[in-house]
Each structure stands twice: as structure tokens, then as C-alpha cells.
Amino acid sequence: MRYALGVEYDGGGFQGWQALGPSGPPTVQAALERALSSVADQAITVTCAGRTDAGVHAECQVVHFDSTAERDPRAWTLGVTGRLPPAVCVRWCVPVPLEFSARFSARARRYRYRLVNRQVRPALYRQLMAWERRPLDAEAMHRAAQALLGENDFSAFRTVHCQAPHARRDLQEIGVRRVGETVEIEVQANAFLHHMVRNIVGSLLEVGAGAQPEDWIAQLLAGRDRTLAGPTAPPQGLVFLRPLYPPEWGLPAEVTL
């Protein structure tokens, strides 16, 4: 049987998603595979919709795994969660066809970046939000961000360590809004490059602070030069909200297009 899981985690205590070997630092994948293997009484490996970096969180990461163990979805959900550290839980489990892939069946991924914008650093929720002391014009950031929409080469916003074979991605939606002292950036694309969201945010912050004009984002995109763009925003403000799949896979509504 193949199963899909919705996994929620606080990435602050992990060195990212990807397992780094039996003696490696703690990762979300390693913790999840240990818990699944314990419930199944057999070795289990998982494939995720999109790997996250150290310190990045997930509201609903989707993974799939195969097992011959006979367990119902409730047993997988509760049994695995009971064996996970407090920073990780399984929200749901759904049997899926063997053709389903958490990675390749996804048609889009959605992220949110949230930061506190005030003079004083945050004390509450600091593990889930970044901090920017410079006053930000969220409306200017939103206008500038619209230049990124569509299928483009995002070389200006990928890390030099990115292993993707090319930098073309279809950015379907991006929005910036202010809610009191909080500024939120949400972005959706068919797929993302390594550090792409955090690099976009870092450049938008320069626009929001008035250090660069609104059309600078369009110039960066056209120039395809990472060295000219803004710094990489800190990881703790970033949450992988969800991947999105066609309805025929029968997954929960929150991850269905």
C-alpha cells in the first residue's frame, strides 16, 4: 500500500528536512522515518513534496511512503505522532494509488514569510517570525513583487548551491500585506529553487525600506545575477504552507487545487 501523510513541524530544532545519515544532525525526515518504521515494524522511507532548509517550518508538508504493514489511517496518524518529537506531528493519512508521488504529482507549492516590523525585536513567537527594524512600505513591496509573476528565469534569486538543472519557474501568485506590526509575504509557484523565497523576500525588504526603487525587482529578474540582489532573509520567518494536487488523488481539501 502507498500512503500520503500531511506533516506539520517547527523546523527550529532541525537541520532541515533531508536525512543526513545515521550519525548526522537531527532532521525532520529522519525523525519521521524512525517513527514510521517503529509503527510498521519494518524500514520505511518517505518522499516529500518539497525539502525545507534548516530552521524553516511547515504547516502541511506532504509525503508518501510504501508499506506492507496492515495499519488503518488512524493508526498511522496517531501511532506515528506518538513516536515523534513534540515539534512534529502527522495531521492526516490517506491511502493513495501507487502512481501518486508527493513530489511529482504536485502542481504547485505555497509559502508564507512573516516578520515583525518595529524598532524592538520580538519576544513572543520569535521562533516563527523574523524581525526588521526599518519601517517597511508593504504596499510598495507588493507592487514591486508583481514583476515576478509568470514563467521566468529566477537565477537572481537562487543560491549558488542550488542543484536544480535550470532556473525557470512559474510563479503563479505573490502578495505582500501588513497586519499591524506584522508584514506577510505569500507566494505560490509550480516549484521553487533553493533559497528562492528567502532571496525574494530579502530583495523586497530593500524596496520596502526605501533603499531601492520598486522597479529594482524587475531589473534583478531580468539581470539574472544573484550577486546584485538583496540578502537572504532569515529562515525562521518562512513556513511551507502546502503543496497542491489535482482533485483525482482524493487528498484533503487543504492540499487540493
Rank of each mutant, 00 (worst) to 15 (best):
E99Q: 09
V96W: 06
W131I: 05
C93I: 07
R71M: 10
R121Y: 13
P97E: 14
V90S: 06
A87Q: 13
W92P: 01
L124A: 11
P97D: 14
S101P: 11
V63S: 02
A130R: 00
V120R: 12
Q119R: 15
R133Q: 01
D72N: 14
L84V: 01
V96I: 11
F100D: 03
V88A: 10
L78G: 13
D66W: 07
R103S: 09
T81R: 08
G79F: 05
L98I: 10
R133L: 00
A140F: 00
W92N: 04
R114F: 06
L115S: 05
P97I: 12
P135S: 08
R112Y: 06
W76C: 10
A102G: 08
R109D: 11
T68V: 12
D72Q: 08
V90I: 10
V120Q: 13
F65I: 15
R126M: 04
R114S: 15
R114G: 12
R83G: 14
A130K: 00
R91N: 08
F104K: 07
A140N: 08
R134P: 00
L124Q: 03
L115E: 04
L124D: 05
H64Y: 02
V88N: 12
P97S: 14
V80S: 06
R118C: 07
Q127D: 14
N117G: 02
M129Q: 12
L136F: 05
L136V: 00
A123S: 11
Q119V: 15
L98A: 15
W92Q: 02
S101Q: 03
P97M: 06
C60V: 10
V90K: 05
A138R: 08
A123K: 08
A138N: 14
L128I: 04
P135R: 07
R118K: 15
L98C: 04
V116Y: 03
L124M: 15
P135Y: 02
C89P: 04
Q119C: 15
A123M: 09
V62N: 02
M141L: 01
V120A: 09
V96E: 07
V63K: 00
P73Q: 05
T68L: 11
R121K: 15
R133S: 04
Y125T: 13
Y111M: 02
W92M: 06
G79D: 14
T77N: 09
G82E: 03
E70H: 13
E59D: 15
V120P: 07
C93L: 07
M129T: 13
A69W: 00
F65S: 09
A123T: 09
N117K: 02
W76S: 05
G79Q: 08
R121D: 03
L115C: 12
R134S: 10
C93S: 14
A138L: 11
G82C: 07
A75N: 10
A130F: 00
F100H: 04
L98F: 11
Y113H: 05
C93P: 10
R118F: 07
F104W: 13
R71Y: 10
E70S: 14
